[in-house]
């Protein structure tokens, strides 16, 4: 997985994402979306990447102590890697359930934290891996193929 076409130099984008910064939240994924539009990718791919990147970015803002978002764009697929510094997910299977959320009330009042983040990413992704555990950072690896 995540092995890019050898002859093709993929384009890499990198963003840092701050914890709790709701003002800038969404800027990284918005930038990724714009780049894909400028590169001429089909709408269906742009939509899936935009949604997955946005959910991953919001997860860092809402649930983590800060982290980063990386996008690697190749002709066959786009990969998004979201890394944060913790606190980690103790039960990944539970986190993947629709409607399950650990978001604090304050965040829910803002309209976030509906427990759909990870399931939404799953729906958009061709391949999706979560590496996490209690007390360490979380890494989301999302691969989205151009061909649906």
């Amino acid at each position: 997985m995540m092995d890019d076409n050898k002859q093709f130099k993929p384009l890499k984008l990198y963003f840092t994402v701050e914890q709790g910064d709701f003002i800038r939240a969404g800027e990284a994924s918005s930038k990724i979306k714009k780049v894909l539009s400028q590169l001429g990718f089909p709408g269906s791919l742009i939509r899936r990447v935009a949604i997955a990147a946005y959910e991953a970015e919001m997860n860092i803002v809402i649930h983590s102590w800060g982290g980063e978002l990386e996008a690697e764009i190749g002709p066959e697929h786009v990969t998004i890697v979201a890394r944060d510094r913790g606190p980690g997910i103790s039960d990944i299977a539970l986190a993947m359930e629709e409607g399950y959320s650990t978001a604090p009330d304050k965040v829910r009042e803002m309209g976030f934290g509906a427990g759909m983040g990870l399931p939404n990413i799953q729906n958009c992704a061709t391949e999706f891996i979560i590496e996490s555990g209690e007390g360490r950072g979380t890494v989301l690896r999302i691969l989205i193929a151009v061909k649906e």
């Binding site: 093709f8 130099k9 384009l11 714009k34 780049v35 400028q38 590169l39 001429g40 709408g43 002709p75």
Partner: peptide, 20 residues
Amino acid sequence: EPCSVLVLDEDLALAMQKLE
């Protein structure tokens, strides 16, 4: 039909170069 005016080049490799 979509008629995106944002696309930098029809060729993906060239579009990427142009973007950089």
